[in-house]
Design a protein around this nucleic acid. Sequence first.
DNA 1: TCTTGACTTAGAGTTAACTCTAAAGATTAC
DNA 2: GTAATCTTTAGAGTTAACTCTAAGTCAAGA
Lengths: 144, 144
Amino acid sequence: MRYSIGQVAKKTGLTAHTLRYYEKEGLLPFVQKTGSGLRVFSDTDIGWLEMIECLKGVGMSLKDIKQYIDWFREGDETLLQRLEMFQQQRAHLENQMEQLNKYMAKINYKIHLYTEAVRLGSLEKAHQNKELQAEQQRVYGDMF
Amino acid sequence: MRYSIGQVAKKTGLTAHTLRYYEKEGLLPFVQKTGSGLRVFSDTDIGWLEMIECLKGVGMSLKDIKQYIDWFREGDETLLQRLEMFQQQRAHLENQMEQLNKYMAKINYKIHLYTEAVRLGSLEKAHQNKELQAEQQRVYGDMF
DNA sequence: TCTTGACTTAGAGTTAACTCTAAAGATTAC
DNA sequence: GTAATCTTTAGAGTTAACTCTAAGTCAAGA
């Protein structure tokens, strides 16, 4: 299948502006153009965009994503660099997920606390609830 | 305990510049100053910084974090707003974690693929491995 | 006391990642 | 065929979150 920039924008949730910007930054080196200069995206290009979304979601900068794409274009000489990059990103992702679990515990505590506070009409009173105090100890303490 | 800005910087991994910036943006309204103007951080302030780190980590902007702090300062009239904010952030965090799990599957597949590719000296050959093709199907397909 | 290093301020500068503009050309629906 | 819509370009502008500078003040150790 072939897609115009607008169709890809709809499909991916990015704007046409952003897609052009990505291309300018070297992130979409495989997009074709018609004789009159219009971009034509293939399913392969959509696949690259999904990979870019993944790497961005893991916290990579566009610059580093471009590095990966450049390595890909250089061929099998850069297989090891690419493997190492993915290993680094996995390690990074593991840390990230661990962090998010901690944040979740903290936010769950806040939800308990504020649910009780809303019920009682007072944060101070909610804070005196023994059960919540115990949970706060577990999550690691504060009062905000 | 009381801490200078430099001690807090070390403790939190933020720079003194960043701490001053946070204060300027209204995120640290409880930090005291000495007669001569030096900042004095308390354990309560450290607690706030941990909360800010958490909310930032969940994806909130400094502006929205300030909103929460302002609500806190307004007292029990804003309990419901704060509860709703935390509920929204929990929902957001759940989506985020789900996304990260998908990214992890994708990256694990890449690591398998590239480990095999490095062994064979060719991405093309690794790609022909039946087991990897099956994994790719499960993860959702591409070839980059 | 002197020196060294930490701290103060206002305000300017930086970076990443968009985001928009304007003017013109291309394509589609009727 | 023509109106409406989409796409093109180069380049300027925006936003969030820092990051740094300069010129001076403060505090602790030898």
